[in-house]
């Protein structure tokens, strides 16, 4: 996962993508990595932050 790709995913979380729209999951605010745990791990490795993974 490149930095650009990870950033794209974070941006996508703020601009609902087709999956998010189809599930009517539209109350998500701020930087969420949407439905891609591998991208989340890559971002955590890059930033040094821990992960908080929500299953809904």
């Amino acid at each position: 996962m490149t930095t650009l790709a990870a950033l794209a995913l974070l941006a996508a979380a703020q601009d609902p993508g087709p999956l998010q729209k189809s599930l009517n999951d539209l109350e998500v605010r701020g930087a969420w990595v949407y439905n891609d745990p591998d991208a989340g791990f890559a971002e955590a490795k890059k930033t040094g932050k821990p992960l908080l993974v929500v299953f809904r």
Binding site: W32, Y34, G40, K49, L51, V54
Partner: peptide
């Protein structure tokens, strides 16, 4: 939440 990488799995 800002201190975490937040991931939402659906």
């Amino acid at each position: 939440l800002e201190k975490f990488v937040c991931v939402r799995i659906v």
